[in-house]
Design a protein around this nucleic acid. Structure first.
Lengths: 126, 126
DNA sequence: GTCTGGTACCTTGCATAACAAGGTACTGAT
DNA sequence: ATCAGTACCTTGTTATGCAAGGTACCAGAC
């Protein structure tokens, strides 16, 4: 035990993926439907996004429960049935605002670096 | 009770902040030290980042525990003591990679939209 | 026949983080 | 004395990513 304190950077990247990953999937579905395993392989291959089935499948279920995607089963000639995911109108309407939110967040994150001080605190003693 | 299912978008933004918020603080400290309450007010005022004390203070403690920041107490002429936070060398060395990681993540997130299919699956029946 | 490996789906349990709500304490004005 | 503003901190809830494990289908090797 006591192997909890991993590399702080690795630990941070896990948190940084939250939310972004969901957006990745919605973006991936914007132009075409895709099946789960395809998303696992596609997203897992992206550098910095070493994502696995244990992450993707629960996320897809959540998106369906929220009404952002619909699913459709289809036979495959080379294996089990595939479950294709496609955006609903609600899902399609969400992608834009979500991309905008993340962009704004990052802009603010960068801009804050060059902000001297919000309320210009009277310089503290001396 | 049973007020669990809030607005999915609001819920998502909470998750999207994870990690980014930590980076915001490190960026804010890159050019100058700041005290906790100042960060609460500065970050809380940013649009889309309605962040409060319950979020910032635990985060700052975590950063100190990880050795990314140091603290220094200082008397204030108008209230209780202020705890100033400053980057350590380790912290300073982390800011660049973290900004890079987030940028790459977002780039991948956008690029995935125009990717036809990763392994060009033989078109399924018909 | 039965193994092995690839495809394809799903669930459980753990660690981590944001946030609301609440708590403490110092200062100056009404 | 009471209130508001400054300034710090903690606890409990909820939501997420992910490793690990499980099921099932198919094709080719043995």
């Amino acid at each position: 035990m006591a192997e909890s304190a991993e590399d702080p950077f690795d630990n941070w990247t896990v948190q940084a993926r939250k939310g972004v990953l969901e957006l990745c999937i919605l973006n991936a579905l914007e132009r075409q439907e895709r099946y789960g395993y395809e998303l696992v392989k596609t997203l897992g291959a992206l550098p910095g996004l070493g994502v696995t089935e244990g992450t993707i499948y629960p996320l897809l279920s959540r998106l369906r429960a929220q009404g952002l995607v619909t699913t459709r089963l289809e036979q495959s000639v080379e294996g089990p049935m595939r479950k294709y995911y496609a955006l609903t109108p609600t899902g399609r309407a969400s992608v834009g605002p979500m991309n905008g939110y993340i962009s704004d967040l990052l802009s603010a994150c960068r801009e804050i670096r060059r902000r001297p001080s919000s309320h210009d605190h009277l310089d503290p003693l001396r």
